[in-house]
Design a protein around this nucleic acid. Structure first.
Length: 420
DNA sequence: GATCATGATTGGGG
DNA sequence: CCCCAATCATGATC
C-alpha cells in the first residue's frame, strides 16, 4: 500500500508535491485527499486486472455510476487540459494551407476537380488553343488528351473518395473508442474534438500528397500533349497535293503572296506559317535536287494541264482562246492574283520575274499536252530538261547548280552524317 | 534499326 | 520580317 502510494506519486506527475516520500500520511495531507484515499482507488483498479471480464465490467459500471465520478472526472480533465495547453495552442490555429489551396486551384483550372465534363474539355480546349496547332490533326490529339485527363480525373476522385471514407471511418472509430474510454478515463469532449482534428489534419496531408501527384501527372500529360503538337506530323495527302500543285504551277516564282498563303492554308487546313515552312523547304529541296523532283513536277504539270484544258475548252467555246496565263492557272482562283503579285516582286533583281513566269506556264502546258505522247520528245525539246528548268528558274542568285549533278555522298551527305 | 522523307527550328543576311 | 541554308527530330518505309 505504501509502495503503491509512492508509485502513484512518481507516476502521476505529482513528484514535486511529495517531499517526504517515506510517509504516506504526509502525502495525503498535502494532497488534501479525503478519507477514501488514492491508495484505495488504485488498489481497486489493480484488483480489476485479477477479476474476470464480467466482474470488471460490473466494477467499471459501478465506478461509472459512483457519485464522485463526475466531480473527479472534471477535475482530472481540468488538470489534463492545463498540461496540454501549450500543445493545444499550437494546434488550435488552422489557417487554410496555401500549398493545398494552390493545388486545389490548379486542379480546378486543369479540370481535374470541379464539374464533371465541362472542366476537362475546357482545359483541353485551352491547351489546344495555347498550342495554336493545326486543326487537321488536332481532333485526334485533343480526344487523346481528354481521355488521358479523364483517366487521371477518375483515379484522383476514386482515391480522394477512398481517403475521405477511410478518414471518416477512422474518425468515427476513434471517437467511439474515446467516448467509450471516457467512462473510465478523463477524456473531455474537447479532447475528442482535438483528436478528430488531428486525424483530419493527418488525412489532409495525405490528400495533399494525392493532389500534388495528380498535379504532376496533369503537368506531364499537358507538356507531352503540347510537345506532341509541336512535333512534326505529315500533312495529309490532299494538303500536300494542293501545295505541290501551287508550287509546280508557279515554278518560275514559287513565292506565294500573303493572300495566296492564307488561301492555301485554308485549303490545306494548316497555318500560314506552315505554308511558309513548306514552301521554304520545298524551294530549297527542289533547287538542291531538281532531278529528283522532275517526275513529281511532270505529274503536277499533267494535273494542272488537264484542269487547264478543261477550263480552256469551256472558255474557248464561249470566248476567244484562253491565254497561257489563265490556262496554266487551272482551277486556282488565287493563281491569277498571286502570279500578278509575284511578277511584280522581281525577287532575283534580274528583271526576269515576269517573263519566266509566263514562259514557264506555257512550258508547263506544252509539256503536259505532249506527255501523253512520250517523255523523250519533251526532253529533246531542250526546254524541259532539269537543266533548262534550272536555268529558267534561278529564283535566287545563290543557286548552286553543282549540287544538282553532284553524286550522293558529296557535301550534303556529310552534313547529315556528322550532324547526329 | 538503318535510311529516307519531311515538317519545324535556328541563325544569318538583307 | 522574309528568305535561305543547315540542321533537328520524327514519321514512314524497307
Amino acid at each position: 500500500m505504501d509502495d503503491q502510494t509512492r508509485m502513484l506519486a512518481g507516476l502521476g506527475g505529482l513528484g514535486g508535491l511529495t517531499q517526504d516520500v517515506g510517509d504516506p500520511d504526509s502525502v495525503r495531507k498535502q494532497l488534501g485527499q479525503p478519507q477514501q484515499d488514492i491508495g484505495d482507488i488504485l488498489q481497486q483498479i489493480m484488483a480489476i486486472t485479477d477479476e474476470s471480464l464480467d466482474e470488471a465490467q460490473a466494477r467499471k459500471h459501478a465506478l461509472n455510476c459512483h457519485r464522485m465520478k463526475p466531480a473527479l472526472f472534471s477535475v482530472l480533465c481540468e488538470i489534463k487540459e492545463k498540461t496540454v495547453l501549450s500543445i493545444r495552442g499550437v494546434q488550435e490555429e488552422d489557417p487554410p494551407d496555401p500549398q493545398i489551396m494552390r493545388l486545389d486551384n490548379m486542379l480546378l483550372a486543369e479540370g481535374v476537380s470541379g464539374p464533371e465534363k465541362g472542366g476537362g474539355s475546357a482545359a483541353a480546349a485551352a491547351a489546344a488553343a495555347a498550342a495554336g496547332g493545326s486543326p487537321n490533326d488536332g481532333s485526334i490529339e485533343h480526344s487523346d488528351y481528354r481521355a488521358k485527363l479523364a483517366q487521371i480525373r477518375q483515379i484522383y476522385h476514386s482515391e480522394l473518395e477512398k481517403y475521405e471514407q477511410a478518414c471518416s471511418e477512422f474518425t468515427n472509430h476513434v471517437m467511439n473508442l474515446l467516448r467509450e474510454q471516457s467512462r473510465t478515463r478523463p477524456i473531455s469532449p474537447k479532447e475528442i474534438e482535438r483528436m478528430v482534428s488531428i486525424i483530419h489534419r493527418k488525412f489532409s496531408s495525405i490528400q495533399m500528397q494525392l493532389k500534388q501527384s495528380t498535379c504532376e501527372a496533369v503537368m506531364i500529360l499537358r507538356s507531352r500533349f503540347l510537345d506532341a503538337r509541336r512535333k512534326r506530323r505529315n500533312f495529309n495527302k490532299q494538303a500536300t497535293e494542293v501545295l505541290n500543285e501551287y508550287f509546280y504551277s508557279h515554278l518560275s516564282n514559287p513565292y506565294p503572296s500573303e493572300e495566296a498563303k492564307e488561301e492555301l492554308a485554308k485549303k490545306c487546313a494548316i497555318t500560314v506559317s506552315q505554308v511558309s515552312n513548306w514552301f521554304g523547304n520545298k524551294r530549297i529541296r527542289y533547287k538542291k535536287n531538281i532531278g529528283k523532283f522532275q517526275e513529281e513536277a511532270n505529274l503536277y504539270a499533267v494535273k494542272t494541264a488537264v484542269d487547264a484544258a478543261n477550263v480552256s475548252a469551256q472558255a474557248s467555246q464561249a470566248n476567244s482562246p484562253a491565254t497561257p496565263n489563265s490556262g496554266s492557272s487551272g482551277s486556282y482562283s488565287l493563281s491569277h492574283a498571286g502570279d500578278a503579285y509575284l511578277g511584280l516582286r522581281s525577287l532575283n533583281g534580274e528583271g526576269l520575274a515576269v517573263a519566266p513566269s509566263l514562259q514557264q506556264q506555257v512550258d508547263t502546258l506544252h509539256r503536259a499536252t505532249h506527255l501523253t505522247a512520250g517523255y523523250e520528245e519533251l526532253s529533246g525539246s531542250g526546254l524541259f530538261t532539269p537543266h533548262s528548268l534550272d536555268a529558267n528558274n534561278s529564283w535566287q542568285d545563290t543557286t548552286n547548280p553543282s549540287s544538282v549533278t553532284s553524286p550522293p555522298g558529296a557535301p550534303g551527305s556529310i552534313h547529315s552524317d556528322t550532324s547526329n
